[in-house]
Amino acid sequence: MELSFYLVQLLNAVQYGFLLFLVASGLTLLFGIMGIINLAHGSFYMVGAYLAYWLTDLTGSFWLAILLGLPIALMVGYLVERFAISFLYQRDHLYQVLLTFALILVFNELQQILWGTDVHGVVIPEILAGSIPLTDNQSYPIYRLFISAACIAIACGMYWVIQKTRLGMMIRAGASNREMVQALGIDVNRLFAFVFSLGVALAAFAGMLAAPVDSVYPGMGENVLIISFVVVVIGGTGSIKGTFVGAMLIGLVSTFGKVLLPEMASIMVYALMAVILLWRPHGLFGRAA
């Protein structure tokens, strides 16, 4: 075990953390702004991965697949919000949990009807197919660096939209006082439909990015979902900064856990969450409700 080995693991951890951040930031937006617990978020990740596989197959280009897939994901998000989620804003979390749990069943079954139960792969696009040599026998795939770069770009873009634009202002205002924003004449329904679609698109985008490194298989969203919830809860719901810190923490713990303590790796993530919640019951950056 030499330094470069740990460097590779560190890069992997950061890349995994970034992917988690994409999924979890959507979750935390939905929760913080709309008060919605969305268990189906993992399904949107899966939808993204399958769209990437399907459209790459159809068009022959991974880039074209992303370009075509994102509007489809936005559309799916919009329809789900209009026909299911929008009825639940005033209801107890319990009903949101149950309805989105049922959505998982529906999405899993739709995925099997549309794409079958086989495991698929997506080829890494040619420009990014190589790897960078680190030492004589260690190298790091460029595509994984690309994932991290894309996630950083998205994160910066999100920061810019939320902090600097009028839309972001409405979103932030909606998060802190929904009724007041409505009273000021902003169409909260449209705003929420937009935010939900955006969250769905983020999850789908993460799934698309992950498709070439991780294979595309039924139920792939469920592991991501639960880990993303852990991230959100560790960071504190509604806090993008907290989500980022949580995602990196989980990325590090689970990647190094797999290397150093393989038989305990899956448990460690949850144990970390339990310890953090014991210390800060509202997460690292969360405020009391």
Binding site: H93, I226, F229, V230, V233, I267, A274, H282
Partner: peptide
Amino acid sequence: TSGIYFIMITLAMAQM
């Protein structure tokens, strides 16, 4: 904890 935290921490414990 309470609310969403309670939902999630019970889930995490069961996952453990």
